[in-house]
């Protein structure tokens, strides 16, 4: 009996300034395949369905268990991680494209450094005095930890930016992931001491005022982070901060 096969269509682009082409590959089906295995199969036999020799597909991947955030791409038009995209669950032919809201590098690889730059811009860290031994951290109610922990599982994959109608390569909007991180650091007892600098960063162009409340982000998050809750919470914090600053005559 012939092996069961399926088709994968991939949007290829050698370089940012080169033309786009679509390639089709016919792959041998095995149980429990995911999109990463498809891409490895192609690397082992980079011949398109019509027998033309191509090159292995460039793509980002690392942990393969959806905790590093690397392998985000558009799979059948949906922004998601390739490692958890199981072939069994996907409509065929499977269509792979790079994320569109970030500069393209090659094939399925995009440059998401904007997100890391925005984390810097919004001071997403706890400013500690140093790494020397100065005793325990602040006590924290379990209820605070239970709110903070889900937020701290953000893998910076960029899927929430990809689906946001306000994010594009010309608009500076930071997107839901960054706003949610601001909420996390403002929640921490030490981080809260410095919440003003984060909120002020979010009051600048590209800040939280750019959110149009489309609520696509929360549906796209692979980690189930309550992003719309974070947007609302931080929006509230920004308003309070603005009013207080105004009352103080700043």
């Amino acid at each position: 009996m012939a092996d069961k096969t399926f088709i994968v269509r991939i949007k290829r682009q050698q370089r940012p300034d080169e033309s786009v082409r679509w390639e089709e590959y016919e792959l041998r089906y095995r149980p429990h395949m995911n999109v990463i295995i498809c891409l490895r199969d192609i690397a082992e036999k980079p011949f398109t369905r019509s027998g033309v020799e191509s090159t292995p597909v460039s793509y980002d991947a690392n942990c393969l268990e959806e905790v590093c955030g690397a392998c985000a791409m558009l799979i059948n038009g949906t922004a998601r991680q390739a490692c958890t995209a199981l072939v069994d669950d996907l409509e065929k032919p499977i269509r792979l494209e790079p994320l569109t809201k970030f500069p393209l590098v090659r094939d399925l690889v995009v440059d998401r450094s904007k997100m890391f730059e925005d984390l810097k811009r919004t001071h997403c860290w706890i400013p500690i005095d140093g790494t020397y031994d100065i005793g325990e951290g602040p006590r924290m109610a379990p209820s605070v930890q239970e709110k903070g922990y889900p937020l701290s599982r953000c893998i910076t994959c960029g899927n929430c930016l990809e689906v946001c109608p306000k994010v594009n390569q010309r608009d500076p909007f930071v997107g839901a992931a960054i706003v949610s991180q601001v909420r996390l650091f403002n929640m921490h007892p030490t981080g809260a001491m410095h919440s003003a600098e984060r909120l002020e960063a979010l009051m600048l162009p590209g800040g939280i005022a750019d959110c149009d409340n489309a609520q696509n982000c929360v549906k796209a998050c692979p980690k189930g982070i309550p992003l719309t809750e974070s947007l609302a919470a931080v929006n509230g914090q920004v308003l309070v901060h603005a009013v207080k600053s105004w009352l103080r005559g700043e």
């Binding site: 790494t131 100065i134 006590r139 379990p142």
Partner: peptide, 17 residues
């Protein structure tokens, strides 16, 4: 302790430890 000070969301006891 250092990691705790850096803000790691460690699980807590009812006493906050």
């Amino acid at each position: 302790d250092l990691l705790d000070r850096m803000g790691v969301m460690f699980n807590r006891t009812p006493e906050g430890l």
